[in-house]
Amino acid sequence: MKYGILIVSHVNEIALGVTKLIKEAAPDLSITYAGGTEDNDIGSSPEKIQAAIDENTGDKILAFYDLGSSKMNLEMLMEFTDRDIEKFDVAFVEGAYTAATLAQISSPIESIEESLAPLKIK
């Protein structure tokens, strides 16, 4: 089983930046992102998130987001998809980086969850 990582932000450049950062920690994983609205304004686009899910070649996708509507759109898509996606309510950058580091070496999901637990934000 191979992990994939999904990054969702309200701002395209933030999504791009976080992706760039965590690629350093996980060069061999499929990392896809969705940032901003369709017009690249600030916001959240389910169509973009869906496209990022479709592009992701991981068997289990670890998903990270920044603010409220990114989270809600992600959850809504998770209700529809048959892909295996696990969403983490953790500090966005640090959480994604930690997960990427562990996913790169194919750590069991339990140990990824354990490492992310202290970063939980709510």
């Binding site: 609205t37 304004d41 916001g43 959240s44 686009s45 389910p46 169509e47 409220g68 509507s69 809600m72 759109n73 959850e75 809504m76």
Partner: peptide
Amino acid sequence: VNKVGGASGPLYGT
């Protein structure tokens, strides 16, 4: 859902 872009999209959409 697809066009609102803010939190009200998924909320009204759901």
